[in-house]
Design a protein around this nucleic acid. Structure first.
Length: 372
DNA sequence: TATCCTTTGAAGGCT
DNA sequence: AGCCTTCAAAGGATA
């Protein structure tokens, strides 16, 4: 109900997107660069067409007037309703908010740059001026240690202090490091949870401050966190100082090695602040819905960068924790009501078809397949 | 205070 | 092989 013609367009767009994802896989097997521009342009046109936008050709999201944007939002919104009977109020507000529409299709411009920020080129090219999204409070560690991603670090007017000579260098990540574990030995005075991205490993400032010879950076890997939650994070320092713990207690409080972030998680982490700034939203669930739709609007090239980043993330994670399995963290998040949770996840709440639309539309990790 | 919500992707287990 | 479940992040909302 309420889908209407616009909803049909939206549906077609999503279906096409899914087929296109299949095309991505096939293309990646046949030839990764083939028809890339054509695919990209078709995707962009598709998005604009589905959204009813009349933007400047070649400039996604540009030139759409207020009416066009409203219309685009209306249709897009209608399409969204196909997958969700009722959007959360904050999301609806956010989508209606004009400041939320302004950058709806602009993130593609930023993402490539942000990837460069994650992998700064050798010649100190990380000094590009870039509109700095307001630092989210979550980027601040509970005890005041700024948690800057590499993107944020290189764009911050006051980046993490680092000697100029080092900050200008590229620190090569040793992909085949025999003793990586020594880099991330847990020490007292935990730094908190640093942003979990592969880039942290190359971050110059992270190579500093070690007082231990042979251990350039005695900073725990961001994937290593106290057992769970923020409370444990705060108590983690105390736990480290407490020597009179039983062996069982120590085992129980053993830091959890978190899963490596997938492509979408990396994208979310990078774009969250921007969406918050644009949409004046704070609720993560609503923000994530927007980010999910923006993710689908990304071109395959832009998504490929995140897939590649995620692949490297997994590679590094495997090197750091060879025996680790995702199974290790199963059951560590306690569910309030398992039945209720299952109902929410499998009971057709993800879309109107009782399936997992994202699964169907999500591209296979085409780059990893070609690389590996 | 702990968990839910919401997204996509990866991984493990089960059939 | 295909399906299902869980967990990664995030922070306001809720039990």
């Amino acid at each position: 109900p309420g889908g209407g013609g616009g909803g049909g367009c939206g549906l077609l767009a999503f279906q096409d997107e899914g087929e296109e994802q299949d095309d991505k896989i096939r293309d990646s097997a046949a030839g990764p660069e083939r028809d890339l521009a054509e695919l990209k342009s078709s995707l962009v046109n598709e998005s604009e067409g589905a959204a009813g936008g009349a933007g400047i050709p070649g400039v996604p999201g540009a030139g759409a007037g207020a009416l066009g944007e409203a219309e685009a939002l209306g249709r897009e919104h209608a399409a969204q309703r196909l997958f969700s009977d009722k959007l959360p109020e904050p999301l609806e507000d956010g989508l209606k908010a004009p400041e939320c529409t302004s950058g709806m299709y602009k993130e593609t411009v930023y993402s490539a740059f942000n990837l460069l920020m994650h992998y700064p080129p050798p010649s100190g090219a990380g000094q590009h001026p870039q509109p700095q999204p307001p630092l989210h409070k979550a980027n601040q560690a509970p005890h005041g240690v700024p948690q800057l991603s590499l993107y944020e670090h290189f764009n911050s007017p006051h980046p993490t202090p680092a000697p100029a000579d080092i900050s200008q260098k590229q620190v090569h990540r040793p992909l085949q490091t025999p003793d990586l574990s020594g880099f991330y030995s847990l020490t007292s005075g935990s730094m908190g949870q640093l942003p979990h991205t592969v880039s942290w490993f190359t971050h110059p400032s992270l190579m500093l401050g070690s007082s231990v010879p042979g251990h350039p950076a005695a900073i725990p890997h961001p994937a290593i966190v106290p057992p769970s939650g923020k409370q444990e994070l705060q108590s983690f320092d105390r736990n480290l100082k407490t020597q009179a713990e039983s062996k069982a207690e120590k085992e129980a409080k053993k830091p959890t090695i978190k899963k490596p972030l997938n492509a979408f998680m990396l994208y979310m982490k990078e774009m969250r602040a921007k969406v918050i700034a644009e949409c004046t939203l704070k609720e993560s669930a609503a923000i994530n819905q927007i980010l999910g739709r923006r993710w689908h609007a990304l071109s395959r090239e832009e998504q490929a960068k995140y897939y590649e980043l995620a692949r490297k993330e997994r590679q590094l994670h495997m090197q750091l924790y060879p025996g680790w399995s995702a199974r290790d963290n199963y059951g560590k998040k306690k569910r309030r009501s398992r039945e209720k949770h299952q109902e929410s996840t499998t009971g057709g709440k993800r879309n109107a078809f009782g399936t997992y639309p994202e699964k169907a539309a999500a591209p296979a990790p085409f780059l990893p397949m070609t690389v590996l």
